[in-house]
Nucleic acid binder design. Structure first.
Lengths: 342, 342
DNA sequence: TTGTAAGCGTTATCAG
DNA sequence: CTGATAACGCTTACAA
């Protein structure tokens, strides 16, 4: 806050005819260690309370080179998945006396790179990021400089940085296998943004499940550009309009995508699951109340957030290069009513 | 970031045998104003680029008493309403070169007060807050100190602080009137947290609509403790179990509440709208895909976020006491299929 | 056109 | 037990 007439150590010291160091030590809780007399300590505390002293963390940060701030860059805070993860991260950070600077990259690589630079000039102590593009290089530089970084949701195979993500491969495998068990062989996949580990791993899981069942993989069965509603909408349209392909089931890679798919289904008067079966990544309250309660692959957002913070602080404690671990948090398939026998 | 060997003005100055002030002036883009020769300016810029100089905003903030940071305190970032507002706020702030420190108060007054103190010690330049409790006193103190504050979603009638909120009264009035037009007279209201302007105004709108139609207000028709799903669930249960009251329609004050209500309806095998009609505050993608597409009161979250930032910066420019304006952003009723004739 | 020096508020080191 | 002093990195009068 604009600290108009904020009390400072110096003022308290002057008022009490003590030195700033003494006041600092008392107020920093180091009175005992420096054997400040109980008397002076009390006087100082009283004066601090009287004047409403609030320590200036900016000054402290400058001196200590520790801001107690961590930067959080995510593609879209209004996506329920990221909102839930962000919430968990904020809580875990707060518990440890850290603040979160929230940066919404709007799925733009440019914005992301810009944020990275700005956060650096804000001297954040660490960074949790769900990267949009392949900014491995940038991050490598940061890590090389000793800045702790944790990737969430998406990671780079070629960047030896710690990350936390769902077991996207396993989740997709389970979802598609579920579909196959219900007799489906013509299964479409509406994918997220190509090149992201999230979309790639889910696609790999999809292919593996198909393969395990002896079903040929057909690239025509895959569509979609990113994780947005509009991409889901467009993809579902081409999938359902196609002459060469006739899906009896759809595997959607994300919650927003699913809305797009549902919109197309709605427009075409296709009912779930009688006309077409549907499984979606990401779970939410609403999934059970949809026209057809949705079968979903739920992600453990709390664990993702918690583990991300844990990995970040471990780097802070033990050094950046000691931690390169990647965590794949298990998903779980919630069976509702959007899958029927083919 | 932990700026291990970060370049500083001093280093560049030493390398170039110039003074820090010169380097500072060039790199702050004030070369012209101080008539630094193009020559030296170029040398400085080149060296800055070569060494990857990033200005230390912490030092700058200490010197200038401006952190370019604004604190955002909200009750729950995973509530889609707040997530959307937060996103807008972040974007507007970023446009102006400001960062957002995100604080999730978990609807706890204690946490909120704590955050307030911490943000103060972080010297944020301003504060946007959706208050949980009646912390008017705290905020008054801040404003008295010249700290810009904007309230969102909820406001205090007794605090002359600027705020931005939906026209909750009007939105509720319209929703309930809509119900009445469909012949309902036994309309229950599942409310949010008592004492919040949001819940109070929506209740007032509800009562006014009833009154305008000559329907008596029955306190038994009102239940609910806060804006959570569990509160909605509990409230709907008492409402539907009650002997003294038989609602044919429900007006839910929030999106999470609505999930609770739906859960009860589901358990009791009550269908919307044939057995009971339902209107809910807050709109979302999912509302149109629910078993019964939901009639909702949509809030203009973008405007709320945008206006909040606008009011904040106006205070920054013109002084805190100049701005005390309250903005009520219009809502709009989206009619879908959850309301039927009684 | 450039340099000097003071100061933002804190903390750490050294001294007593 | 307490104090003086330097330093963190930057900005800005004031000088030259």
């Amino acid at each position: 806050m604009k600290r108009y007439e904020q009390t400072t150590l110096k003022q308290i010291a002057a008022d009490l005819k003590l030195s700033v160091s003494t006041v600092s030590r008392v107020l920093a809780g180091k009175g005992d260690r420096y054997r400040i007399s109980a008397q002076t300590a009390d006087r100082v505390k009283a004066e601090a309370k009287r004047t409403g002293f609030v320590p200036n963390q900016i000054a402290s940060a400058l001196r200590l080179k520790r801001t107690h701030t961590i930067g959080l860059i995510i593609p879209d805070i209004s996506n329920p998945f990221f909102a839930a993860v962000a919430r968990q991260i904020e809580m875990e950070a707060a518990r440890r006396g850290y603040f979160i600077i929230l940066c919404d990259s709007r799925d733009s690589t440019g914005a992301e790179v810009e944020y990275l630079k700005l956060l650096q000039s804000r001297s954040v102590d660490g960074l949790i990021i769900s990267p949009v593009g392949r900014i491995g290089a940038h991050l490598r530089g940061l890590r090389g400089n000793g800045v702790p970084v944790v990737l969430i949701d998406r990671y780079f195979p070629d960047l030896e940085a710690p990350y936390v993500t769902s077991d996207n491969y396993g989740g997709a495998y389970e979802a598609v296998t579920h579909l196959i068990e219900y007799g489906h062989t013509q299964i479409a996949c509406v994918r997220g943004i190509a090149g992201s580990s999230t979309a790639d791993d889910r696609l790999a899981g999809y292919r593996a499940a198909l393969g395990a069942a002896g079903i040929d993989y057909d690239p025509q069965m895959v569509a979609g550009d990113d994780f947005s509603e509009s991409s889901g909408y467009a993809a579902a349209q081409v999938l359902l309009k196609s002459k060469s392909v006739k899906p009896s089931a759809i595997f959607s890679q994300g919650n927003l995508i699913t809305f797009g798919v549902l919109r197309v289904l709605d427009e075409k008067n296709l009912a779930v699951p009688v006309d077409i079966s549907l499984v979606s990544f990401d779970d939410h309250y609403y999934a059970s109340f949809l026209a057809t309660p949705l079968t979903t692959v739920a992600q453990d957002k709390e664990s993702i957030g918690r583990d991300a913070v844990k990995l970040l602080f471990r780097q802070l404690d033990q050094g950046v290069d000691k931690i390169t671990e990647g965590i794949h948090v298990p998903t779980f398939l919630i069976k509702r009513k959007s899958v029927a026998y083919c």
